[in-house]
């Protein structure tokens, strides 16, 4: 099957690799910055364009991958769906719940498949935590804490710095944890959030989720650190605890600086044979072949946006938001 990718920044390049690893043929790359589209297209022998809407409608395209800034997602999803394409959309699904619902409706009407990349559901460590919970190792769980983040992301044209566009760490990054917590512990009853959202690119979000089951979840998101990327999870129950910290990894390396420059290479600290990003494509492509449902449904992706939107609303009002 033929793939087109819209949005040729870091995530676009990432997905181009993993999708082609799965046997997809990348035929076209679109980006409003044509040079980015050309650079990625060259790597994969594809065509480049800055007309992303036209790319959604190309006859030779079966799947459209949408890796652009969040507020543009729904328009591309709707265009691709109307053209009868299957769609892989990066998270967050949309910037508002209404955008998500409009995109969902378009997909349903067109009878195409939509997958939203809530990749944490595919991370080995998160699946292992879920397995331990399901095996009862913590007993009945009453409290969950998730911590994620590090340096403020760059993104194309520094678009993350525009909190209206990106929603900051509260929306863009902690949505991984809202989705995973809902995946494992069910629906959310209410949301409370305090967030920094400073203009000098320091953001920090403190979110409390009260689940319908009664479980309390605390989600901490940071784009306030000068460097690094940290993920920590803690699950507490009536018969035990499960904790995870990505600082505990099999490889620790330190590369010597070359004269007057950056270190020459980065060694991954925590390699796995198959990347979770590739597992997303495997799951999505299996669904396209009629082999079951993927782990993430469009409804799940809308729910994640609903929780993230409630967090921003709470941060603004200073009071909890009931869903």
């Amino acid at each position: 099957m033929n793939l087109a990718i819209i949005g040729c920044g870091g995530m676009g390049g990432n997905h181009a690799q993993f999708a082609t690893n799965c046997g997809l043929n990348l035929v076209a790359c679109g980006d409003s910055h044509k040079k980015k589209a050309q650079a990625l297209a060259k790597r994969f022998g594809a065509e480049a364009t800055d007309d992303c809407m036209a790319l959604c409608r190309r006859d030779d395209v079966d799947i459209v991958g949408i890796m652009t800034p969040t507020p543009t997602h729904s328009a591309y999803v709707i265009a691709a769906a109307e053209a009868g394409k299957h769609i892989f959309c990066e998270k967050p699904f949309g910037r508002t719940v209404d955008e998500c619902l409009a995109a969902e409706a378009a997909v349903k009407k067109a009878g195409v498949r939509l997958f939203v990349g809530h990749v944490v559901r595919y991370f080995h460590e998160f699946e292992a935590i879920r397995a331990q919970i399901e095996a009862g190792k913590a007993g009945n769980v009453g409290f969950v804490k998730a911590y994620r983040g590090g340096i403020f992301p760059q993104g194309e044209d520094m678009w993350f710095r525009d909190y209206e566009q990106s929603g900051g760490v509260t929306f863009d990054s902690s949505i991984h944890d809202y989705d995973w917590i809902r995946y494992v512990f069910g629906d959310v009853e209410r949301v409370f959030c305090q967030a920094l959202q400073r203009d000098d690119a320091i953001d920090y979000a403190l979110v409390t989720l009260r689940m319908k089951s009664g479980v309390i979840a605390h989600v901490i998101g940071t784009w306030a650190h000068p460097a690094g990327f940290r993920v920590k999870v803690e699950v507490c129950g009536d018969n035990g605890m499960i904790t995870y910290d990505n600082a505990e990894a099999p490889i620790s390396s330190m590369m010597r600086q070359v004269e007057g420059g950056q270190p020459t290479m980065i060694v991954p600290a925590n390699p796995v044979e198959t990347s979770p990003y590739q597992l997303e494509w495997v799951d999505f492509l299996a669904a396209l072949e009629g082999k079951g449902e993927p782990k993430v449904t469009p409804e799940d992706a809308t729910w994640a946006v609903r929780i993230a939107s409630a967090a921003l609303e709470s941060a603004k009002s200073g009071e909890p938001v009931t869903l």
């Binding site: 007993g139 009453g142 409290f143 409390t208 507490c236 018969n239």
Partner: peptide
């Protein structure tokens, strides 16, 4: 202060055994 708390961890008490304050 905002707080979610409750008896959620099965500790041998009727009182809150888990609290999350903001």
């Amino acid at each position: 202060v905002y707080c979610e708390n409750g008896h959620l961890l099965g500790r041998d008490t009727d009182l809150d055994d888990a609290g999350c304050l903001q």
